[in-house]
Simulated assay, not measured.
Amino acid sequence: MKYIDSIQQANKKMALAAQQLDEWRLPANPINYTISYEYVEGKNASLINAVQQRLAEGKTLDNFSMEEFYKHYILGQSKFRDELVDDMTDVVSQVDKSAQQSAQQVERFINKLDANLVHINQGEGEKSQLAIHNIRRASDDFKSQQQSLIERLLASQQKARALKAELDKVKQEIYLDPITGMYNRKALHKHLDTWHKQDPSRQLAAIVVSIDQFTEFHDKFGPLIGNVLLSKIAQKVSSYVDDSGLPVRTTNDEFLIFLPDIDKHIAGEIAEKIRQGVEKLRFISSKSGVRFPKMTISLGVDCFAVSESSTALITKARRILSQHPGDTSNKVILA
């Protein structure tokens, strides 16, 4: 993102960027303004296509989508950082494993040495006794040195585990949505790549989850309460997904659940359980005791090939609901 403009050109683009934000009905915060300026600049084709595609799907631009655009198309996104974290995690895990193996090998050697010294024949004269004495001294010195080595290896192991815990936190920042705790699009792309490498012909069941009337709720009660409600619904949705599944937050009020090797009708049954679970949720303010409106979700279910891109999967999954005739609120739609 480099701009080489005259003051006059920059002022003109700034005015266009502000006008564009008005059209999008977004506040002029730093991220939104940066996206708008880049958009009117007209040179970032990937960003422009992503914005236009979202608008073409009838989706409004919100703070969540603008932050996603900023991460992917302005920061350039940190593929190098992701690969670096993965490589560091592998190295740290190997250090941990090697330290543990080395400590165990040293301990086994010392035990074997002690056991064999007992069996040395001590009845073969003064030279034999002297040899045994020297071996024992050397053995004691060796054990002392190795004990120090074991302590250093254990210390290295503890440091490696501490570093791995820090790397896990970094991975959470990279791959998890901070409000819902669900995975983000970057994590989806990474999982799709892994699944494809394991089996290019693999099939995925996908459940798209859209929160009914969330925009109205958000506008009425504000972003703080809206985020709390969003988090509660996301937790309930995620509770129906086991470790093999992947719950992803794709937009402000939309989630996608990917279930490898699951039949569409089984996924439909899971979707119905999710719908019922969310419908039973009640939202009450812990401070004021105010009861908020009951929320429902719309769900669409279909199966896709793991070879498709994350963008294609999201687009096709959304069409399950957007192209369905009639009202989809609080319903499960099987494609």
Rank of each mutant, 00 (worst) to 15 (best):
I270Q: 15
D168I: 08
L84E: 09
H324W: 01
V40H: 12
I4P: 01
D140P: 01
Y39G: 05
K159S: 15
N121W: 06
R275W: 01
Q8K: 15
A103N: 06
I262L: 13
T215K: 15
E279T: 05
N49Q: 15
Y39T: 11
D141R: 00
D140C: 11
E41L: 09
E166W: 09
P200L: 00
S156F: 06
S309G: 12
P293S: 06
L334H: 12
G245D: 09
T34M: 08
I179M: 15
T215S: 15
A271Y: 09
D193G: 12
I179Y: 08
A160R: 00
W195K: 06
A162L: 11
I211F: 06
L246N: 07
L21F: 07
A312P: 06
I174A: 07
T328L: 04
L299A: 01
N121G: 05
F214G: 03
I35C: 07
L192I: 03
R319Y: 14
Q203F: 10
W195S: 01
K186I: 09
S329Y: 11
V92I: 09
I7T: 10
F292K: 02
A271H: 10
V228H: 12
I333F: 03
S78C: 12
D177F: 03
E57Y: 06
D242C: 05
E151H: 05
H191Y: 11
L204Y: 02
I110M: 01
I132T: 03
Q104D: 11
T194L: 09
